[in-house]
Design a protein around this nucleic acid. Sequence first.
DNA 1: TCTAGAAATAGAATAATTCTAAATTGGTGG
DNA 2: CCACCAATTTAGAATTATTCTATTTCTAGA
Lengths: 129, 129
Amino acid sequence: MRYAESILEMIYKSDAHMTAEQVFLALKQQYPSVVLATVYNNLNSLYQQGKIRKISLEGYPDRYDKLTRHDHLFCRRCGKLSDIYLSDITGELERQIGFSIEGYDLKIQYFCPQCRAEQRESNSVYESE
Amino acid sequence: MRYAESILEMIYKSDAHMTAEQVFLALKQQYPSVVLATVYNNLNSLYQQGKIRKISLEGYPDRYDKLTRHDHLFCRRCGKLSDIYLSDITGELERQIGFSIEGYDLKIQYFCPQCRAEQRESNSVYESE
DNA sequence: TCTAGAAATAGAATAATTCTAAATTGGTGG
DNA sequence: CCACCAATTTAGAATTATTCTATTTCTAGA
């Protein structure tokens, strides 16, 4: 795992929700010989060890994220993902469920301001269902 | 949208978190001429109209689900997805965030009892990190 | 009945991810 | 210092899910 440390650091320093491809491109700057499959190997291994998060978004490639507690806003229209810091509900969940959990992903669906505006526009012309 | 009603009904009657492929196979029983692309078209259109949920799981194809409020338990090891009924926190989220949302997906990561057992087994032989 | 628009079909294309096999690396004991 | 082993990386093929394009079929209204 020659690259695991660099990848981990990269993910923790950024809040860009990087895809494997993006991690690959960034890593390539430092290690030009690295290939995409290696990045996938490393990311999967880090994920399995529970050192990073993996975020699946419908219609977009998987993204990797730090474990640092935070939640996500996901725009249903343009797919934009942003961080939002809400209080940690792990304890509450465990109490309700009755056993311990590894964590949770809270993805809040909304329409970002921009998409909201564009939607209003199109509605004013044709009244869609 | 000849099939939209059937698909919607199928999703609402089942709690199997069906993939597009599974919906396709089930629909084929009734309409042998239907093709997978049509199922994708219908599912996407239903999703865009906000009539069904789409669940993305890392490493598995997308699944479709009813809107009926419920949350998910996702086994980090075997990928099994099960429903869990926790109280609706939409109002609370909106209050914390300050604007209205379309909904939310709460995916709780855990190790299911079976995987928990298997993990204990392997740990008893080799102490892994 | 004719026409237009919407949806379905067929199958090719794309994109993300995994897999396989071979080469490389790093560490260990002789 | 060398040989060996296991783990990792590399290269590129393969797989899988999903979308796209072009063509055909369907349906409702003129």
